[in-house]
Design a protein around this nucleic acid. Structure first.
Lengths: 377, 377
DNA sequence: ATTAGTTCGTAAGGTTTACTAACAAACATG
DNA sequence: CATGTTTGTTAGTAAACCTTACGAACTAAT
């Protein structure tokens, strides 16, 4: 008998595969090379993807018919042969709406183009709104963004704090008073658009991967009013058995006690790192600012070391207030990580700040839409 | 335009997909239901997979022609309609060879049937052999197993300690003196069989998933001369950016020092948990056996808590000497884990011993072969 | 007994998919 | 100006799954 799967590891197949799935896959493959590289001919794409020129032509025709791809003239090269017709993603075909619910007391959103650049911003103050009131505010923010879009909308992406399942239901977000809130369903029926709702840190990790040229295996730690993380393993976000992957804020760190946390335990990561705590501590004794931040960084390193070791991560990215994170804290974190893992031997471990600033969640939400609607990212 | 990918998360396509890939996928899908459920008709399989009866018939015919599947008579039910022809995996079609290189001073192997049951065992003492000598011993063990197989051999699976890449090259296994040893290549050319080589703890995790009905998200911690782990996320083994995922033995645990480790650091997980250390400590003060094991369990819990939290694991499985692990140690581990994570809120976290005993790695190696050759597990 | 209804497996034919082979168009080069 | 190269398209083929239809074999009701 023949060797069916060569030396590769076969996943257990769980759903049937039809010819049209093949088509969709290859369509995305073509669209992806157009999206990423740009200024390529059909023949270039055929060479890069391994598909034949014929098949690529067919798929490109479909994409042109849908208005996603356009021809942009001929290549200027002085080469023998028929000149190539260059293709580009039509960046004026669609816009995307990205919404970030992770900030304290404010909801922020933006209209983005297909490259993930922000075209227009909007925000609504949250105040103390929770539950249905908070949901209403999300809808209002989305309404204003939809109104400000100048092109057809590809979809609406939302990065929400808390635990979000694969269907976009916010299973639990204490700060917003949501418990089983079907945000994706609500927004989808309200706007008649494709909607993706996911955890804020997961969205941020995707953004860092797409726009901040992060590795395909990395962890993004988001420090703010709380502490959360998004994990990307082999380019795929990790969700976890109960969709709570990355919820490291209430992991106890160290074996020497610590302050009491809102969750009742002592020494949770949040008690060391959450920005209100850090700011309060620094305000109390400004002269020991460096010590406070160094200690916080060490605590983060202690908590992350087992994760970095177990997952063999090569990259950790920090997102949050630069003035707090990007200095003694980050230095202490990487030093602690290196001294507590085998990272030195198994290749370099890097830790850095995100390059995407405060827009990271909104842009990640846009990536989710791009990925879900076009298979591109 | 149409919504191409619904609400699902699309992976970034990276390779082209051809019609024959569709075929292979669906073939595995059918074989899988035969393998797992058994005593099913073509119509049953069609209903379960969503494929049509026609397609299933076609695929089954192919599998029968290859000798993998056989008809075993008609269903006895008193139902209206033409009686169903029942199908079964032909368990006498192939045998599998599984080899475990993770034991101290001994290599163990077995001939297994397609269900993963052990048909025949063999072992060779390792002594102090390293490098090429160790490789020669693996070959000798494999030779004796191949000779003892009574059926055609589907493939040869090996669980090796250390860091193993996706091509089955042992990048680093200090105890065996291997550095970049292409074990898969060597065995494959020597025996002319499909060979899969992977990390021992990863193999063990696969075995626990297939035979020990473990969750699809779980961590298997293997305690022996060293400490390692295998991670299964969504049913797929995690390899890590440098193929060193699960290497947690040299993660420092706690903030209060600890014994010096062979790696030079202080307080590595291995210094608390490795069986020689535990046995020596217990031998020194037998009356404080419980305290020693409890402390070790607490240390394990401290190290695992961030991983369990970050990955939202629902299940941790221990593999190793029962007399040490299955008692105060396991109790202390789970208690520490629960007290240091949010596991209480995000669904139950369970910790248990493996049910597969000492054969776990060999059986995991067999699962790797099944998965690679048949797409079944 | 006979009839009707159900279920199983197969056969025939259609659609979709990507492939190979061949070609015209358009260019550079000797 | 002939030759060779590259591009993109046309035409035809092979492989995959589908729908439709049918005979075989059974139960259950008349």
């Amino acid at each position: 008998m023949t060797t069916r799967f060569g030396t590769g590891r076969a996943l257990r197949p769980t759903t049937k595969l039809l010819p049209e799935h093949t088509r969709g896959h290859n369509r995305s493959l073509v669209l992806q090379t157009v999206y990423r590289v740009g200024q390529q001919s059909r023949a270039d794409i055929a060479r890069e993807t391994g598909l034949t020129r014929v098949t690529v032509s067919d798929l490109v025709a479909e994409l042109i018919a849908e208005g996603l791809v356009i021809e942009t003239g001929q290549r200027e090269d002085a080469r023998p042969g028929k000149p190539a017709t260059l293709l580009e993603l039509d960046r004026t075909a669609f816009q995307i709406i990205g919404i970030d619910l992770s900030e304290y007391a404010i909801f922020r959103g933006a209209v983005l183009d297909l490259d993930g650049h922000i075209v227009h911003r909007a925000e609504v103050p949250l105040g103390r709104a929770t539950g249905a009131d908070a949901t209403a505010l999300v809808i209002r923010l989305a309404e204003s963004l939809v109104a400000q879009a100048t092109l057809p909308i590809l979809g609406l992406g939302v990065g929400s704090p808390g635990v979000v399942d694969l269907a976009g239901v916010v299973l639990s977000a204490p700060n917003l008073g949501w418990l089983g809130e079907d945000l994706q369903g609500i927004l989808s029926t309200r706007f008649g658009l494709p909607v993706v709702v996911a955890n804020d840190a997961n969205a941020a990790a995707l953004a860092e991967h797409s726009f901040g040229d992060a590795d395909s295996d990395m962890m993004l730690v988001k420090v703010g009013h709380g502490v959360g993380a998004g994990l990307l393993l082999d380019g795929t976000p990790l969700f976890g058995s109960r969709f709570a992957a990355g919820e490291i804020g209430h992991v106890v760190v160290g074996t020497d006690g610590g302050l009491e946390c809102v969750c009742g335990k002592h020494g949770c990561l949040e008690t060391w790192l959450a920005t209100p705590r850090l700011e309060k501590a620094i305000a109390a004794t400004p002269e020991s600012r460096t010590e406070i931040l160094t200690e916080a960084g060490q605590r983060l390193g202690i908590a992350l070391a087992p994760v970095v070791g177990a997952l063999n991560l090569a990259e950790v990215v920090l997102s949050g207030p630069t003035e707090l994170l990007d200095g003694p804290l980050a230095l202490a974190t990487i030093e602690t990580l290196r001294s507590r893992t085998m990272a030195e031997f198994h290749g370099d471990l890097t830790l850095r700040m995100t390059t995407l600033g405060e827009d990271i969640v909104m842009r990640g939400a846009a990536v989710m839409v791009l990925s879900a609607q076009l298979g591109v990212s």
